[in-house]
Design a protein around this nucleic acid. Structure first.
Lengths: 337, 337
DNA sequence: CTGTTAGCGCATTCAC
DNA sequence: GTGAATGCGCTAACAG
């Protein structure tokens, strides 16, 4: 590994000139620039970005912490953030938290220890209070796909209330009147918001949501399977169920299959997220799409704006809207009346 | 951000002592250690890892480059690598290449520029020659899930030939005699190897693989759909198709559905990978499992061994074996004879 | 336009 | 056991 000093010597100039030739070409004479370039090529010199960062106090790096990488949900957001950042010449460095509160906390810290100029956090496990404390401690942080009241300016999130309402509206439009739901973990704000929106819309239409038909899941298919079984075995009749994630719907479908219940003829299902899984399920899942890639990109933009203290902080889109993606898992009762 | 100098001043000692108290506690008196600790807490001091790396010339960081994050395939491997590295006190920093050769090259370089002590590369697009050149240029690199002849010691990979053979064997065991296949891109070595193993096994059993029933896909579902349509519309009869990825199988299933072809009654399907998708497909997909997490973990271990020039380089497992996961997409002709 | 002088924050000699 | 220098590789004033 050649250093800048060696290049300088080889080119017969000072290290400062080499540095300028590389970073501020307009400040240096063409002739010397050529000499420097020649030396750089001859030695295969590559600037040490770490030293550069130390000296200039700017690392051009932004960190991101997620639960895990092995899921399309997180991966898609990271992809979005990475591309957005690449466009402005920043690098993204990712760290996973291992789905533990201590992991989230330490990853958050550690990224700043590495001189990230800002960090994007997808906090799943940390409580609202803990997140608030960390947001105070690290002002250059942005929350990805999470709303923390009081920190709206540093949050990129989906309007989950409207997402839930969308699901309800679709079901109502198709003539459903007896509706069940399998939510996410009660402690997750997304789950709570989706449920609120869902209930409100139903209520507004004079269709109450029976508590006995409201099940708490955890966004995973295994538990969803159990919940759907319970639903199917309960005496309460229903024609549709709103699943708060596509994976939840996958578990529910499996339960229906085992019970010999047809979808959508007997029971209609609507999911949430619209990850790849949704279109591979059978029947193809009607779902509420979350623009994950865009949410990731916005997080990247916001983090960059915060890092550089640019006024763009205000102009980046922070709230995203869910959209319905109609496929084949919801029966239309209004068609054959 | 407090610096080590401020801590030293606050504690009434030298910066060297602070450094030692933190990194080599046994070399410093208990009393002064206490003073240092107090100062650290009082100022909320956190060592700057970048400066630390510069001074000690070891960053305790390993890089990884993948095509994209938004797929479970890459994500799972990264998770494996991250956990393995975390156990040995190393950090993983990931960069995506955007599925382009220049991207792969530049990500590879850039991670070394950031003083990664080693980098793990999942090279998809780069040609064998180009990868070989880069492997020479950067001796501290390991290839993840790819075998590059001549560099076996720095490669972690699946025995794809055996994986292909496994698929063939399973089909033969179930009594299939007329078999089709939809491969990955011909230029990918995995695809070629899987096909070789598949063919050899078939050949050994006296069951030839008809070239007209061998289609080139790209591991994605869209193209697989088209290929399966072609297969279904061709005059050649067949009872099973080996899909070189689960997503390929998903596309094939869709084609069958549109054609009214039942799986596995009319046509049997076998996939490759065993990502989550496989068990959510309908019917549940019988597939060849690739231990992605383990492959990622081994890559992490090997990269760490190479970074620290430890003799463990030799002892980490480099070749992984595929396994068959039987589900419900293959018909058993031997059962009802 | 270019060279000299100072650091960035820390670890690591070498004396004491 | 501890402090005073020195340097990691680079950028950023300040002169000239």
């Amino acid at each position: 590994m050649a250093t800048i000093a060696q290049v300088a010597q080889h080119a017969g100039v000072s290290t400062a000139t080499v540095s300028r030739a590389l970073n501020k070409p307009e400040m240096v004479d063409d002739a010397t620039k050529a000499k420097v370039r020649a030396a750089v090529n001859a030695l295969g010199y590559r600037p040490n970005q770490v030293a550069k960062g130390l000296a200039s106090r700017c690392s051009r790096t932004i960190g991101v912490v997620v639960n895990q990488f092995g899921s399309a949900y997180y991966g898609t957001m990271i992809d979005g953030a990475e591309h957005a950042l690449r466009n402005v010449g920043y690098k993204l460095i990712a760290e996973s938290s291992g789905e533990a509160a201590t992991g989230e906390r330490s990853a958050w810290q550690s990224l700043f220890d590495r001189q990230c100029e800002a960090v994007i956090v997808h906090a799943d496990v940390l409580s609202e209070n803990e997140v608030a404390i960390l947001m105070e401690q690290h002002p250059k942080s942005v929350l990805m796909n999470r709303l923390l009241p009081g920190y709206e300016e540093r949050c990129i999130y989906l309007d989950n209330v409207r997402g839930g309402a969308l699901a309800a509206q679709h079901l109502l439009d198709k003539g459903h009147q007896a509706i069940a739901t399998i939510t996410g973990p009660r402690s997750y704000y997304e789950a709570a918001d989706r449920l609120v929106g869902f209930q409100q819309r139903l209520h507004a239409a004079g269709v109450p949501l029976d508590p006995a038909l409201t099940m708490e899941g955890n966004f995973k298919d295994d538990l969803a399977f159990d919940r759907m079984m319970q639903l199917l075995e309960s005496p309460k009749p229903f024609t549709a169920v709103f699943c708060q994630s596509d994976e939840t719907a996958a578990g529910a479908i499996e339960a229906c299959r085992q019970k010999g219940v047809r979808i959508p003829e007997d029971i209609s299902l609507i999911g949430f997220d619209d990850v790849d899984l949704a279109r591979h399920l059978s029947p193809k899942l009607t779902t509420i799409r979350q623009p994950l890639r865009e949410i990731g990109a916005a997080s990247g933009l916001l983090a960059h704006a915060i890092a550089t203290a640019s006024p763009e902080i205000k102009s980046v889109q922070k709230i995203f809207e869910a959209q319905i993606v109609e496929r084949a898992s919801v029966r239309d009762f209004t068609a054959n009346t």
